[in-house]
Amino acid sequence: MPNAQGFMPSDQARPLSIEHSPLSVERLDEAALLTRASTGDEAAFGELYVRYQRQIYLYAARMCGVAAGDDVVQETFLAVLRQGGRFDPSKGTVGAYLYGIARHHVIKRLDREGVTLSEPVELVASDAVAPQEAPLETMARERMVGVVRQAVQSLPPAYREVVALCDLQEMDYATVAQVIQCPIGTVRSRLHRARGLLLKKLSSVPSMTAVSRV
C-alpha cells in the first residue's frame, strides 16, 4: 500500500557500502533527508537513493524505454546535489519533487525523439495489441504481462504517464497531480481515457478475464 506520501515503501535491500551517520538517517523526515543529501551527507544521500531510485527508474523506463532509466536516475540525483536547496515543502512532497526533476529529463528525452507529453486531441486506439501466437488459455503469465506492458508502452505519453504513476507505481492522485502539475480532475480523466484505450488495445486478446491471477 502507498505510504502517507503516496509512495510504495522501497523493498530493495539496503546497500551495505553506504555509511550511516550517528544520527540515523532512517528516522529523518524526507525534507531533512533531502537537505542533508544535497549538502553532501553520504548516508542521507544513500538513504534517499534507496527510497526513490527504483520508482524513478521505472517511471523513466516506462516513459522513455529501459535504456533511459539509468540516465534519468543519475540526472535526477545529480540535480539533488546541485539544487536540493530549491525544494519547497509547501509545494509538495520530496517524492513529488524528485519525480518532477525526473519528469523534466523524461520530457527532454521525449522532445529529442519528437514526442510531446501533451494530451492527444484524438484518442488513438486503432493499433490494437495483437496477442502472441499461443491462445490465451495457454499463454504464459509472462507473455500476458508482456502484452499488457506493450499496450501501456503504445499509449500516448500523457496517458502512459498517468498509468505508470497511478496504476503501476500506485501513487495517489494528489501526488500525481503535483508531479505532472495539473489538477486532480485532469489526472482522473486522463487515467479514465488511458484505461479505456488499454481495454480497446487489449480487446483483441480473447477473453482477457479468463486468465486469472494465481
Binding site: Q12, R54, G69, R149, V163, L168, R195
Partner: peptide
C-alpha cells in the same frame, strides 16, 4: 485490466538503476 497492470508492476519489482 487492473489485475494485469498489477502483474506488470509486480514483474518490475526487482528492476532498478
Amino acid at each position: 485490466l487492473a489485475e494485469w497492470l498489477r502483474e506488470v508492476a509486480d514483474a518490475d519489482v526487482t528492476s532498478g538503476a
